[in-house]
């Protein structure tokens, strides 16, 4: 005889109860709730960033007709093209010089704004952020009119001083200068606002101690301000480097890569080759070429930040 009747549902019921408790506990955990709350964003990034990135990797391995897998064939082809190396060189010149000037101008202007009396700072911050909040496609159109080959407002003004006309977008050197100038104008306010935030977080006591030690203005900057801002400078530089390398609209609107391809950067040349030239795999390969360059920069900068974090 069996003393206890077999109850097939009992184990299942106990398990489901345990599962409910487990789920409740899991939900109670902060990390789980945080994960669930960020899940929509994670999904959005997966759809809008990860999928296109993987798809462009796939495209870069196809032949021009997109019928055959060619592995690294597109990259091998690019490495033999003179124009490609011109684009690599220009992208580096464009991004590095623009980031240096943006950082420098941002740093100087942040100091000026920091020294403005607190009640007037908001006005200055608002005004100085204007270039950054206007969509670059729109503001670059205004710059295009200022640089217009035949009706440039700059040349008109310079003509009163007997200068010019300057071929702002018609000469290779001037065209490079023009696209970098517009990029600096657009991006410097971002550096300014980040540096201003960093400046405000530097404890006043450090400056007081430096003053007691007899430090002059330059020494206060060099030994107090800059070390305290190092991390924010590094992060801002990395972020801006990525965005500037991937820039498209400013160059596309202002020069479309001309004259003689001397202002093309990765994104504009990828568009020219991939969309206008109907060679999408080659266009994808051009745009993917920035990834290793930026990855190396990111590794160095982030490693430096982590090292300093560990030291402190």
């Amino acid at each position: 005889m069996v003393d206890v009747a077999f109850q097939p549902n009992r184990t299942a019921a106990a398990q489901s109860g345990r599962r409910r408790v487990g789920l409740r506990n899991a939900l109670r955990r902060k990390s789980m709730s945080a994960f669930l709350m960020t899940l929509p964003l994670i999904l959005l990034i997966a759809i809008l960033v990860i999928y296109p990135a993987l798809y462009s990797l796939h495209l870069a391995t196809l032949n021009k007709a997109m019928t055959k897998f060619v592995g690294f064939g597109n990259f091998e082809f690019l490495f033999k093209r003179e124009t490609f190396w011109l684009v690599v060189k220009q992208s580096c010149i464009f991004a590095i010089s623009a980031v240096i000037f943006k950082a420098l101008i941002g740093f100087i202007v942040a100091h000026f704004v920091h020294n403005v009396p607190a009640n007037k700072q908001r006005k200055w911050r608002g005004m100085l952020l204007v270039p950054w909040v206007i969509p670059p496609a729109m503001s670059t159109l205004a710059w295009l009119w200022l640089f217009d080959p035949s009706y440039s407002a700059f040349n008109y003004t310079l003509s009163f001083f007997g200068i010019g006309p300057i071929p702002w977008t018609g000469d290779a050197m001037w065209a490079r200068f023009s696209v970098i100038l517009v990029n600096v104008w657009y991006g410097a306010p971002f550096f300014m606002i980040m540096y201003l935030a960093a400046l405000k977080s530097v404890p006043e006591q450090l400056y007081e101690a430096a003053a007691i030690d007899g430090a002059n203005w330059w020494q206060r900057i060099w030994y107090v301000t800059l070390p305290m801002m190092r991390n924010i400078i590094a992060i801002t530089t990395l972020f801006s480097l990525i965005v500037t390398f991937a820039n498209f609209d400013i160059v596309r609107i202002l020069t479309a890569g001309g004259p003689l391809d001397h202002t093309h950067i990765f994104a504009t040349w990828a568009f020219r080759v991939g969309i206008e030239g109907s060679d999408i795999p080659l266009g994808a390969s051009v745009s993917l070429f920035m990834v290793p360059i930026l990855a190396v920069a990111a590794i160095f900068i982030l490693r430096d930040i982590t090292k300093r974090g560990n030291e402190s």
Binding site: P167, G170, A175, G258, P259
Partner: peptide
């Protein structure tokens, strides 16, 4: 031709004519 033609786009010639230049 005008000295800046290397920088012309598709709107430049239209403006050139309309401006009477």
């Amino acid at each position: 031709l005008p000295p800046d033609v290397s920088a012309w786009d598709d709107a430049s010639n239209n403006k050139w004519l309309v401006a009477g230049k």
